[in-house]
Design a protein around this nucleic acid. Structure first.
Length: 287
DNA sequence: CACCATGTTCCTTG
DNA sequence: CCAAGGAACATGGT
């Protein structure tokens, strides 16, 4: 299974990066693939970052929010990062060779910050517009069963694709949407607006549980991957060195088609919804 | 070798 | 104008 970053992976990465980059100055910024900084121009991007100082890193949905203060400026600016499907961000010694598919590199002195992205679905840009389209933070205090209910009420789509709509709830992707529905014992095909208060509350709790648990697990694994080849061996917390599939075992339905349900023994099914794979147990996730 | 997987944006359709 | 659905994007893996 290939790990695609969703909210927990981004949160873990943000916590990892914060102490590494906060306070560091960018001596030189290099855009190796112009597409990765769109809609910024590579020139503007490089100029704006040269001499800038990193102040902080936070997260919103699946976005990394770097606060940087450009040289000669008094106020911080938002630099938005998104990993897409295959994006990675890490530091490497400045003497190390650039990894394949390096999209953007920032020379920090002894170290180099690398944004690597083989598929170019990710972004690192000063365009913060995407943030405005995001729904509530599922792990935030403002996220209540009522808020979830309102987000889902105005849709007749099936609940699973709805959960992946970033304007309704920010941060759930294909994996954790399936996981949350399984924990909540809610069938993925149910029209979102049809969820009653009981199932709504179960789903709300499941979303928070699944995400918080993943963040907690991810945070226990050291992120020591530095961009070498064969990097799939260690995604953000893909696998601890001596425990293969460390992370994979955390997933309870995703990618387990044909296997027995861990709760009722039913057979896990794989179906397509909105051209994306959904995994669920038809026996204990009732419609 | 053809096709699949994935998140987001953009376009088309209803 | 809005909701919904599908294509496009890019490319390593199967």
């Amino acid at each position: 299974m290939r790990a695609v970053p969703e909210l927990p992976e981004v949160e873990v990465l943000v916590r990892h990066l914060r102490p590494l980059v906060a306070g560091r100055r960018v001596r030189e910024a290099r855009v190796h693939r112009a597409k990765s900084v769109r809609p910024d121009s590579a020139t503007v991007f490089q100029t704006r970052l040269r001499g800038a100082r990193f102040l902080d890193v936070t997260r919103r949905g699946k976005y990394l929010c770097f606060t940087v203060r450009p040289a000669g400026s008094r106020e911080g600016r938002l630099l938005l990062g998104h990993l897409g499907m295959t994006g990675r961000m890490f530091l490497q010694p400045r003497s190390a060779a650039l990894p394949r598919h390096a999209a953007v590199t920032l020379e920090l002195g002894r170290e180099r910050f690398v944004f690597q992205d083989p598929r170019c679905f990710g972004r690192l840009t000063f365009d913060a517009a995407p943030l405005e389209r995001l729904g509530p933070e599922p792990l935030g205090e403002a996220f209540t069963p009522e808020v979830l209910g309102r987000a889902l009420a105005r849709s007749r789509r099936a609940v699973k694709p709805c959960l992946m709509d970033q304007s309704r709830v920010a941060g759930l992707g294909n994996i954790y949407a399936s996981e949350a529905l399984w924990v909540a014992r809610v069938a993925p095909q149910i029209p979102a607006a049809r969820l009653g208060p009981r199932r709504l509350r179960r789903l709300w709790a499941a979303i928070r549980e699944v995400l918080a648990e993943a963040v907690a697990w991810g945070s226990t694994v050291p992120l020591n991957w530095a961009g070498g080849e064969g990097g799939d061996g260690l995604f953000y917390y893909g696998r601890a060195p001596d425990t293969p599939d460390y992370y994979q075992e955390r997933l309870r339905v995703y990618d387990r088609a044909g296997e027995p349900c861990l709760r009722c023994g039913g057979r896990i099914r794989r179906v397509l919804q909105a051209a994306r794979a959904t995994f669920y147990c038809p026996r204990c996730q009732r419609r």
